[in-house]
Design a protein around this nucleic acid. Structure first.
Length: 429
RNA sequence: GGUGGGGUGUCUGAGUGGCCGAAAGAACUGGUCUUGAAAACCAGCGUACGUGAGUACCCAGGGUUCGAAUCCCUGCCCCACCGCCA
């Protein structure tokens, strides 16, 4: 959520900045709504003030021994007015305030100054290219062919068990998948200093509102049946970031911010992506991810995003997977993000770089929705903190990258050096 | 699932219809004292909206009342015990 004062004071500037994100802010609607809210609240409040005074007067008289009914008579006029008007005024004020809040909840974050202009992913700007795609002097297979021929990757079976966009892994393949997870977790915990955390994979609507998935993107989520408004998490970002919801961290515990690494499955409905990536495990309803989440002081978030992105890159580098780092343009930037770096890994099977990590600084956007604060020692006041998150990395897609980049002429797959300690002596699948 | 007890400010915790935005303590901030620190003492110390007067907020939502942190209803959560189950 944006700071309402900011819109109030500079509606045109905010609208212009949001345009970079392809979002059109109806400033006239906003200002009208805000003015209506203010008027309605003022009316309702002055009447409430009258009521309070009248009640006080009754209280005093009663204490002096006047019978209640008689005391009420002295403020008859006020009581009558309250009776006829207050309820309606209160409702009007509530409706106006709700309408404004709903509007605020659907306004995306303002992009950072660094963010390049552009409509879609084609305008994203490459800022780094690491490693070179290996020359493969035999017929290149994609991960589906590799995994199916080798065994261990079965999409037909998954389709029987559930439906499309799922996979069954078995044997060495399943182990390689697990090895990747363990390697990522250990690297972030030991080398990068993150705290490991394990969280629920099911969250309530409030958590999803906090991070920005609701109310606008309900279609992307799997909602559970039942009386509770429960959802499967689309990313660990949701439960982990919401740790800070409705909290005020003391300056001491917050000096270096909070850094979490969390491994979870992620569930996405992929509504609206019917034709895309139907082959293989690039786009699944269920996938695993090792997520990095930071809650930091506002003055540190910019640096911390850089560091977090480097931590994600370190995984690709240690796996010796060629990748490029791009900064997303305004039109491709997510709803809650101020600035996002995508890491795209080279996939020989597609002869393309594909997204494997997305690292974003949300600024105070999520914190304002969550009321996540820290006590600034300089002001001694609770102030909004900043949230940052990034994949380090998407495990399923990393498996795809390993299979395709480490394939051999005879249809097998070499185990990357750094994963060998996790593979119990297996060096080739 | 059953029974009982609870949810109050950053934290602990008092408050059972008007004197309560709310005692007290802790923490925090400033000051006095001290070579410095600790201790002690003094003062300050919630949030949102509103130019302001003011209004709202004591888990959430309803209700009773002229008036609700306080009474009633519903829900959620926590604690204890019992039952059931991994």
């Amino acid at each position: 959520m944006l700071d309402i004062k900011l819109i109030r004071q500079n509606p045109d500037l905010v609208a212009e900045q949001l345009q970079k994100k392809k979002f059109t802010l109806n400033t006239a609607e906003f200002l009208t709504l805000d003015a209506a809210r203010k008027q309605a609240e003022a009316d309702s409040q002055s009447l409430q003030a009258e009521r309070k005074q009248a009640s006080k007067k009754i209280g005093e008289l009663v204490k002096q021994g006047t019978p209640v009914e008689e005391a009420k008579k002295t403020v008859n006029e006020t009581l009558a007015k309250i009776e006829t008007q207050l309820e309606a005024l209160k409702q009007k004020a509530q409706q106006a305030s709700d309408a404004l809040h709903n509007l605020m909840m659907e306004i995306p974050n303002i992009p950072d100054d660094d963010v390049p202009a552009g409509d879609d992913e084609n305008a994203n700007k490459e800022i780094l290219s690491w490693g070179k795609p290996k020359k493969i002097d035999f017929e290149v297979r994609d991960h589906v062919d590799i995994g199916t021929e080798l065994g261990g990757l079965d999409f037909d079976l998954a389709s029987k068990l559930t439906g499309s966009r799922f996979a069954v892994m078995s044997g060495g393949m399943a182990r390689l998948h697990r090895a990747l997870t363990q390697f990522m977790l250990n690297t972030h915990i030991v080398d990068h200093g993150y705290s490991e955390i394990h969280v629920p994979f099911i969250v309530n609507a409030e958590s999803l509102r906090g991070t920005g998935q609701l109310p606008k993107f309900a279609d992307d989520l799997f909602k559970l049946e039942g009386e509770q408004n429960y959802y499967l998490i689309p990313t660990a970002e949701v439960p982990v970031t919401n740790i800070a919801r409705d909290r005020i961290f003391e300056a001491k515990e917050f000096a270096d911010g909070l850094h979490f690494v969390c491994h979870t499955p992620c569930f996405r409905s992929e509504a609206g992506s019917y034709g895309r990536d139907t082959r293989g495990m690039i786009r699944q309803h269920q996938f695993e991810k090792v997520e990095l989440v930071k809650m930091v002081r506002p003055d540190q978030s910019s640096d911390e995003l850089e560091k977090l992105t480097l931590h994600a890159e370190a995984i690709l580098q240690q796996l010796e997977l060629p990748y490029r780092k791009v900064i997303l343009c305004g039109g491709d930037l997510g709803f809650s993000a101020l600035k996002t770096y995508d890491l795209e890994v080279w996939l020989p099977g597609q002869q393309k770089y594909r997204e494997i990590s997305s690292c974003s600084n949300m600024g105070d956007f999520q914190a304002r929705r969550m009321m996540a604060r820290w006590r600034n020692p300089e002001t001694n006041k609770p102030e909004l903190l900043h949230t940052i998150n990034g994949s380090g990395l998407a495990v399923g897609r990393t498996l795809v990258a390993v299979l395709e980049n480490y394939q051999t002429a005879d249809g097998r797959v070499e185990v990357p050096e750094v994963l060998k300690p996790y593979m119990g002596g297996i060096s080739v699948l």
